[in-house]
Design a protein around this nucleic acid. Structure first.
Lengths: 146, 146
DNA sequence: CAATAGATTTAGCCAATGCTAAACTTTCTG
DNA sequence: CAGAAAGTTTAGCATTGGCTAAATCTATTG
């Protein structure tokens, strides 16, 4: 038996937490898209592919391809050459993302970081906070927040 | 001109923050790998591919392929069929990740979340906190921490 | 109402990250 | 020390998410 087998104790216990990080990348992207689409609809009445591409900083063709997947996933609907709409499920996901975003951003501000940093960091963090942590942040916000 | 062109104001201002999220995925993976390898070396004297695969919850072949990229990036060294080592740069990245990890995990605990949640959430959050937010967390920890 | 500009889609490419199955090394053990 | 078990690598495939260039559609406007 090879050498590594002599220390095999308790290794798979931690794999759950790690693999979560990895496979969640796809749903993060989906959340970013639907959140942005929801914002665009609210801000300007409709979401166009070009606007999504510009705000995400990717090429138009990339948006088209990703929207096709989101459509298959039942999050958005779109007719060729027309604006993008969210399904019920899409709106739910967008609202959930916005809620997390609001809590995390407000929390960071209450912690004392700059607005710029709060905005940027909350974009990254929002996809990785559990409900328990969100509750803790909301609690903190209720006491120290503004 | 198509209809969408009538509201083009100020769209690209926000793209920087968004694109950061997207392209950072690769370095996140690299950080996870080197951090885990550092932990394995410290815990058991050496890091073997199988251990990395198990803890990350991926197949052996995936680890081999990723390690090849990390080797090209100058973060690890490895002879075929032998254990994995970190380069100086690899150690630096690992140490930096561990430092962030410690701060974030300790901070979450001080915020009042469970150990389990603090462990899991900090894995996800550590890649998305700026130095400014880390300082704010450390400050909080110094006052309320344990 | 035809031309054109801008938006959108298609086609085809690439790299990263995952997998399984098969081949090959290393190490332990009888 | 030969065989078997475990670890490691190779080969080949799929998906995701990115790009550019070319083709196509829509809508404005002269």
């Amino acid at each position: 038996m090879p050498r590594a087998a002599k220390h095999q104790r308790g290794a798979k216990l931690r794999s759950a937490a790690f693999s979560r990080i990895r496979s969640d990348h796809q749903s993060e992207l989906a959340e970013d898209y639907v959140e942005l689409i929801a914002d665009l609809i609210d801000e300007r009445g409709e979401a166009r592919g070009t606007d999504v591409a510009m705000r995400l900083g990717v090429a138009n063709a990339t948006v088209v391809k990703t929207l096709k997947r989101l459509q298959d996933a039942g999050l958005v609907t779109q007719e060729p050459y027309r604006a993008i709409f969210l399904t019920g499920e899409g709106w739910k996901m967008a609202e959930d993302g916005r809620r997390k975003h609001r809590i995390v951003e407000g929390f960071l501000l209450a912690l004392g970081v700059s607005e710029e940093t709060a905005r940027i960091d909350s974009e990254g963090i929002e996809h990785h906070v559990s409900e328990e942590t969100l509750r803790a942040m909301a609690r903190f916000l209720a006491r120290n927040g503004r």
